[in-house]
Structures are given as structure tokens and as C-alpha cells.
Design a protein around this nucleic acid. Structure first.
Length: 188
DNA sequence: GCCAACGTTGGC
DNA sequence: GCCAACGTTGGC
């Protein structure tokens, strides 16, 4: 089992919206590294910390879980969608999404300030992309980091430690590695 | 609303 | 393959 953090702008889709809906497709991710985590590594039952960006204050607000593994993000094929990408097609999908289910709204949100505090050298959240300058909207979280954040939030769940992270994934190194891409034609 | 840092594009 | 220019993210 792996653990994750995903960002969402609450004005567009909040943890309250997820609670109301029960589950949703996590569409609209248009970053290759984030896509690869969803497509290649997210497993059914993985826990997902939900982070509100562009919020006052920004921070981790609740918990979700993966309820469907990756499938093509069809919003990329819809010219009317803000997520439309003419380079994606049903025959050759460029973007993927998973479905997530609501688990809980945390009793106390964990604001970015606090995440950053624990992200200082030697802190339990050291190396988490969200504590630094990374914009990565889907990022892996270690079991220890997961437990630390849930404890700060007053949440009830604990890390599922059957396995740690996807093979080869090193959360503290997530911000940098280039994402290997298949060659593709240049847009005109 | 500003704007720094990030991630991507595309000319060379 | 470099890197300037561009568009986006996301904190403030």
C-alpha cells in the first residue's frame, strides 16, 4: 500500500464536495509526473491526503482512498472541457485519472505553515514536495509522513504498511527526476 | 491581484 | 540538447 497527497482548489472542488458526492473521478491532472503516479502506482485502497491549495490557509483537510485504479481521462477529448487536449484521443490517451472515495474530514486541518515547520531538516516531513517549492499535484507520502500528518489533524486512520512506496519511488527525491516521455510529434 | 518559481514548448 | 520565452501554479 502506498499513500499519497493530492491538491485541489476548494473553489473548484473541495473536501466538502467529495463528502457530499461520496466519490469522484480525479480528472484534470495535466502534469506528466503526477499522471505517472496515478497511472502507474496508485492502487485500490491507497489512502490519499487531500490538500486545499489557493485556500486561506492552504493545508491538508481530509482523507480519501483510491476506489478505482487509473483509466483514461476522457475530459481531454471534450473540446468544451477546460481540460481539453487535442493531443489525447481514445486510441492514444495522454492523460489518466483514478476514482477516489471520501473517508473523512479531519477534525483539524493541517495548515501549510505547520507542514513546512515539520519539513525543516530533521523534521518528520523533510523532503515532502509540498513543504518545498514543488507544484506537483499528486505526490507520494511515506507511511511515517502519513501517520504524522494524520496525528496532527486528529484523524483516526493509520498508515497501511503492507508495502511502502511503489518500487523505486523515493519521496524525498520526487521534485527533480525528469519524466521519461515517448517521442511525440511537435505541435505546430 | 501580484509575481516568483516552476514546467513545458519550440527555435536554433 | 540548450535555453529563452511562455503559460501555469499557488502562496501571499
Amino acid at each position: 500500500m502506498a499513500h499519497w497527497l493530492v491538491k485541489t482548489e476548494p473553489d473548484a472542488f473541495s473536501i466538502a464536495d467529495l463528502k457530499r458526492l461520496g466519490r469522484t473521478s480525479w480528472d484534470g491532472v495535466r502534469n506528466y509526473q503526477a499522471r505517472n503516479f496515478m497511472r502507474d502506482d496508485m492502487q485500490h485502497g491507497d489512502w490519499v491526503l487531500v490538500y486545499h491549495s489557493n485556500a486561506k490557509p492552504p493545508g491538508v483537510v481530509g482523507l480519501a482512498e483510491v476506489v478505482r485504479t487509473a483509466y483514461a481521462d476522457h475530459t481531454a477529448w471534450d473540446p468544451a472541457s477546460k481540460y481539453f487536449d487535442e493531443l489525447s484521443s481514445p486510441q492514444d490517451p495522454r492523460w489518466y485519472m483514478v476514482d477516489v472515495g471520501f473517508v473523512e474530514v479531519f477534525p483539524q486541518m493541517v495548515p501549510l505553515d505547520e507542514l513546512r515547520h515539520h519539513g525543516e531538516p530533521g523534521g518528520v516531513l523533510e523532503g515532502m514536495p509540498v513543504t518545498g517549492k514543488s507544484r506537483l499535484s499528486v505526490q507520494p507520502v511515506t507511511p511515517d509522513q502519513f501517520d504524522a500528518i494524520v496525528a496532527m489533524a486528529g484523524g483516526k486512520k493509520r498508515a497501511r504498511k503492507r508495502r511502502s512506496l511503489p518500487a523505486g519511488v523515493q519521496p524525498s527525491k520526487v521534485a527533480k527526476p525528469a519524466v521519461a516521455q515517448p517521442p511525440r510529434p511537435r505541435a505546430r
